[in-house]
Design a protein around this nucleic acid. Structure first.
Lengths: 193, 193
DNA sequence: CACCATAGACCGAACGTTCGGTCGGGCGCT
DNA sequence: AGCGCCCGACCGAACGTTCGGTCTATGGTG
């Protein structure tokens, strides 16, 4: 059987790029390294994509898209605040895992480029919406009163987002659902027996 | 009163450097930007430090030093595992805040340089020691049985480490001790009222 | 079926810019 | 005079990107 020439699409090349950006950091990753990882030359890359920052933009748009979408899901918008919050925590963990490379890149954005600054603005928007939900749950008396809702919101999303730093598909033992459930369990009920 | 010429020491210059490295990422930060932030020229910097990677090394050595030191404190080495673990979680959060710029840089290290690879090795060592303690607490029946100790360890330090992403001295409302206590409280008892 | 034109995917070389760092020196203080 | 701290000019290497091309596959035409 003849060995066919592997060709890239913008999407498949983006996938390779995002893996490299996560491995080395966007600024630490060069187009030369991407060419090497993809097995084509630097100039070939420009046949498929407009440029380095454009790949970053596409990736960050995808990550923010899925995260905002989850906030509009029915179980995130109807019911008691504490139930909605539990759903958001569990579901955000699942979405983070499903789109791990893209969400990881978003969480690591620093602000050195226009694209990153846009993404950071979007993240702040997300954080505000979740913080509002936490404040609601606290107001309804379902959160412990000795921790300020703002602090609680930060710890919650710190916990969720930290999954991106260690979760590896196929290598973390637990699946997305299991990790999502564990994150929600620890967040609301803690680790003590 | 005459305006005296501000001069740097290696340590005060390192402090400026670490702030910049955290703001833009180590790879995204240039020596030109450091010169600008410090108010001196690039060549002046080399009078005080050996080079860019050397500043990174000094910072990461400092961060790993304080984190390993806390694991050797009496309250972290004697007593029931669950009590030692509570102390470590609370104390690690405090230390992270006290040495925020240095620990933040450590947590963001990627592995692009020899120095970063060394630091990542040290972090893995730290993670192993804490994971051992979590396993001990689980074996003593003090942790919930439905979450694997390895997963519990990752979530624990995910929570602690995430503080570096939002805590800002003087701007987060709560002090190091309060945040440390909140982290430990949420980690072991959860957010639910 | 053979030939040709076209398009898609690719490449080597080069560009302008930025990078970390060095060199040779000046200034102010003791 | 000597030293510490500073600086302008410059360096070689690496960066992201562009330019002008080649190669291969495909479809149309005779």
């Amino acid at each position: 059987m003849s060995q066919q020439r592997v060709t890239y699409t913008p999407e498949s090349l983006l996938r390779v790029a995002v893996e490299l950006f996560n491995e080395r950091g966007y600024d630490g990753a060069s187009m030369g390294q991407l060419a090497e990882a993809a097995g084509i030359t630097k100039s070939s890359i420009y046949h498929h994509v407009r440029g380095k920052e454009d790949m970053l933009r596409l990736a960050l748009e995808r990550a923010t898209g899925v995260l905002f979408a989850l906030l509009d899901e029915p179980d995130a918008t109807t019911g008691r605040a504490i139930d909605r919050l539990r759903y958001v925590v569990w579901r955000a963990t699942e979405v983070l895992i499903e789109e791990l490379p893209y969400v990881t890149l978003l969480l690591r954005a620093r602000g050195n480029t226009e694209t990153e600054r846009w993404a950071l603005d979007r993240r702040r928007e997300l954080d505000h919406r979740v913080a509002d939900l936490v404040a609601r749950a606290a107001a309804e008396g379902d959160l412990r009163a000795d921790i300020e809702p703002r602090l609680a919101a930060r710890l919650l999303f710190g916990l969720v987002n930290s999954v991106s730093e260690w979760y590896r598909p196929g290598r973390s033992g637990a699946g997305p659902r299991q990790v999502g459930e564990a994150v929600a369990a620890v967040a609301f009920d803690g680790l003590t027996a």
